[in-house]
Design a protein around this nucleic acid. Structure first.
Length: 253
DNA sequence: GTTCTAGAAC
DNA sequence: GTTCTAGAAC
């Protein structure tokens, strides 16, 4: 069994020229960050935004969120803020792709794992469906549950910088003992709070939510298509109001 | 972070 | 008997 490489993200972040990376790895990059496809996506869309290593910031400061939050507040803030800006660009690209592929968009979460498994800071950009063959166990699911507390939303992390220094100090400790137990919590649907006995049952539920969403969106698009079609006909016959504002007179003509 | 698999859970 | 979880990986 090959031992997985837990430092591969750092080798990516150190590339002087990110475009050397295979296109199967690199999604996009800026002067200060690169965004890669998560190798084991836990949702239909799942990317990691990594800070590039730019002096005076060092690889060891960029090891994790915890190590970054230990450097001077202003410099740490600048890096988190920069990652957030670049993640928002990625969000926009993902939303475009959602519309292109499915005709609608759904939530995208942006945040850090409180206890990371791989070295080098990485900001997750992940779609809220949580449907993926690589999502296989409770730890995978709970690590992205948006209300459980293990997943730290970017907005919340940024808010720590504006709060009392004592609160910042408390949160920035990111103690393993405080967060790791959350991964063992019972399986609960993040959307409807229903509990599940095991992962296969939860995955069936998530798939059901998705199938229902697709069905509703199809109906919506079909209704809109019909409305627009009627409006075209109405315009052709000089009827003034769009069909969705018209009062039904029961006139069949 | 994953894979593999023993044995728990059903 | 099969499904599923959870701990080891030298």
């Amino acid at each position: 069994m090959p031992m997985p490489n837990l430092t591969v993200l750092r080798t990516y972040a150190l590339k002087p020229n990110p475009t050397d990376l295979p296109s199967s790895v690199l999604f996009c990059h800026t002067e200060t960050s690169l965004t890669i496809f998560d190798a084991y996506p836990k949702a239909m869309f799942h990317f990691l935004v990594l800070p590039r290593v730019i002096p005076p910031t060092t690889t060891s400061e960029l090891m994790s969120l915890r190590s970054l939050l230990a450097v001077e507040k202003e410099r740490a803030w600048g890096i988190v803020e920069m990652l957030g800006k670049d993640a928002e660009q990625v969000r926009g690209m993902v939303e475009d792709e959602m519309v292109k592929r499915y005709g609608f968009k759904w939530d995208i979460w942006i945040g850090f794992h409180s206890v990371p498994s791989m070295e080098h800071l990485h900001l997750h950009v992940i779609s809220s469906d949580l449907i993926s063959p690589a999502l296989k166990n409770k730890k995978h699911y709970n690590s992205f549950h948006p209300k459980l507390g293990f997943f730290l939303h970017l907005k919340d992390v940024l808010s720590w910088f504006d709060s009392d220094p004592s609160y910042f100090d408390m949160m920035s400790g990111l103690k393993k003992d405080q967060y790791e137990p959350l991964l063992k919590e019972d399986l609960v649907c993040w959307e409807c709070d229903k509990a599940f006995k095991n992962i296969p049952a939860l995955k069936t539920h998530l798939q059901g939510i998705w199938d229902e969403r697709v069905r509703r969106e199809k109906n919506r698009l079909e209704k809109k298509r019909k409305r627009d079609h009627e409006d075209e006909e109405a315009a052709a016959t000089q009827t003034s109001l769009p069909s969705n504002k018209r009062v039904d007179t029961g006139d069949a003509s």
